[in-house]
Amino acid sequence: MDDLRLLREMRAEVPDPGPEWLVPARARLLRRVRAWHLPRFGRRLLLAGALGGAASVVIATRPHEPGGVVRPATVRLDSATVLRQAAEVAESRPRRAVPRPDQWHYTRTLDKQANDDSGTTQEGWIRYDGKQTAGYGEDGRMHVSDVPPDPGDDDLSPQQYDAKLRRLPTDPDDLLAHVSGDRHWIDLPVEEGVKKNVEPPDARAFRVIFLYLERHVVMPPKLEGAMFRALMRIPHVVVDKDVADAAGRRGLGIRFDWGADPGTLSYHILDPRTYRYLGSRMVWVRDEYVEGDSTPAFRAGSVWATALLASGIVDRPGRRL
């Protein structure tokens, strides 16, 4: 009797998955890896809520293991003072012209993953109306590609971001209510078959405000001031001094404090004089394991940092700032 042959025939009728699973599953994976990495700067922040749910499936921390905890030394600042100052500086900025739809938003970023010393510089162009993206390929040539519409995506074109910003209230309380309850950032992105995380309204307000601060092209000065004043009204917003981005630039590290025992600390970093967005820094406080592994995927003390090196409008893809 050939037990292996019989076993190979058992359930042999189970087929390969069809396109009804493969196509959306591939799209979802792409969305998640883009969110995790960042072909466009800050993409992962948009998905932080959705990703939290996905990642929690496979990530387990072992809080009781000795030596697995590193708490970075930080100097905490009075957040109200810092944010009020930021609001005043922002409100005094000059107004900027609205770009034409055929102009391009150029960004250059530096991404330093936890296991990577040198970091990766990426640059890219997206048409202001979002219809095309452009970048230099591995062959050194410029590639321009059309962006297919993805109605389930939460990301917006630069033009859509700016249009959204122009509609936002500039009263800090109204603004806070708006960013806490905006269905766009609650319902999207659509991920078929994935349970949505319920994000606390405070955390969502924090996330969305920094999304706007990071990704805007044209930010009305009064609105930017209101954003900092709205941040003052969100509980658990912490400001630490001298937090470095991926390029080593030190600034004000602002984070939402999730409470007693976070696995990581995630900062948005602002320039200490201009209060413009510099980058982000995530610090692992505890060893983080991918389930089933005996060695941590990320050791306590690991850092993942980004830096927004350039962001602005140019006339043609290939032009830099």
Partner: peptide, 29 residues
């Protein structure tokens, strides 16, 4: 997916395979 579906059925395989690739991506370095 077919391998996991033979062990757990197709609907659990959907989740397991998706999570496998996400975990793999995170560990790719």
């Amino acid at each position: 997916h077919r391998y996991v579906a033979r062990r757990l059925g197709a609907s659990l395989a959907d989740d397991v395979v998706s999570d496998t690739f996400l975990a793999a991506f995170r560990k790719r370095e």
